[in-house]
Design a protein around this nucleic acid. Structure first.
Lengths: 191, 191
DNA sequence: AACCTTGGCTAAGTAGCTTAGCTTTAAGGC
DNA sequence: GCCTTAAAGCTAAGCTACTTAGCCAAGGTT
């Protein structure tokens, strides 16, 4: 039988494509193998198993997301940067419905690329917040707040949790606008 | 063989307990059956299958969460009500780590109790926002914002997504304080 | 007491993941 | 140009989990 010529990268990339098509939960080794034209156990030559594949997919998606967030914010500051980054975040989740959930996995400490990607993503947020004059503990709190808002919104939206007809784009716009206001007066919010 | 005397309610309740112990993803019919002292297929006399069980569990958890949110906010208004409700929300997620994820499932339209529970939960949020003078489209946007923030925070926290040592309780407090500020000036945030 | 509904059971089939161990390809050394 | 060998594929087999089919007994109803 002619070799297909796979390696870890091709396998993980195809898994990402498949996940976007069928959903992260429905990503299965069997489907992936048949997509790659290979018997299922052959995948084990390239990834250690289903869990390891999910972890690698997480690393890939996190790196992509970090890059898009960073790119969106570059050359902007303050509310401008915030809106651009938030837009890029939700846009990524829309374009890659199967990869996005993978980004929520905690980076594998043994995978330097994964760790680096996670740091880049958080760093992008931190950089935007620095434009509001937020540093130290305030920056940590604000980063958590922003990540919560973005992730929560995108997740609820994907789950179909927003039942009402009210335009979801506008709701997102309002959410980001409210975060902008919050960040401007952050240190005065509760201590 | 002596009958155990199960019914749907006992099965779902035990599933909730088990989920809290082992995690929602690890809730399995096999474990549930052995916990109830019954062979696995016997469960099918009470629930239609694994998916239906998850849906029933969602209904149970949503109802509980709605009740706790409502109870926390009763007799309070404005920021006071907001803080109480937000505290109850996160507290529920902490006390019931297995049930909480189940609440994110969209209610089954064919299950009136489930639908009602979902409406109660959203209604509790809406009621709090009415205390800020938010109604109509503004209320819809603000509800989505608040749900996103709460759900996002709790989810990231549960996933271990907050790596830094900075106190998570304080970050949550700051998040709620910032939402309070946002809601006070909501109509002026972006239109 | 006979009946029949219901809650339990065993058996068997499906899908998904994993491991073991074999074969063949094709790359590199001689 | 052949030989060796690492790597990439394969089949076979076993595990866990869910589901369906069909049987049997418990226990309430008439």
């Amino acid at each position: 039988m002619p070799r297909v010529g796979l390696n870890q990268q091709t396998v993980v990339r195809e898994a990402a494509r498949l996940a976007d098509e069928v959903g992260f939960q429905q990503l299965t080794l069997a489907a992936l193998a048949s997509r790659l034209g290979v018997a299922l156990p052959s995948l084990y030559k390239h990834v250690r198993g289903a869990d390891a594949l999910a972890q690698k997919l997480s690393a890939l998606a996190t790196a992509e997301l970090a890059t898009e967030m960073t790119t969106a914010a570059v050359g902007r500051s303050g509310g401008d940067a915030l809106r651009a980054m938030a837009g890029a975040y939700r846009d990524y989740a829309h374009r890659h419905p199967g990869r996005y959930p993978a980004t929520q996995r905690v980076p594998d400490p043994a995978d330097p690329e994964h760790v680096e990607a996670g740091e880049r993503a958080v760093g992008a947020v931190t950089a935007v917040l620095r434009g509001y004059g937020l540093t130290g503990d305030d920056a940590v709190d604000a980063t958590r707040a922003l990540r919560s808002a973005l992730h929560g919104f995108v997740t609820l939206e994907a789950a179909g949790g927003f039942g009402l007809p009210r335009d979801v784009d506008r709701s997102y716009h309002q959410l980001i606008a409210s975060m902008d206001i919050s960040f401007r007066s952050w240190p005065g919010t509760g201590r």
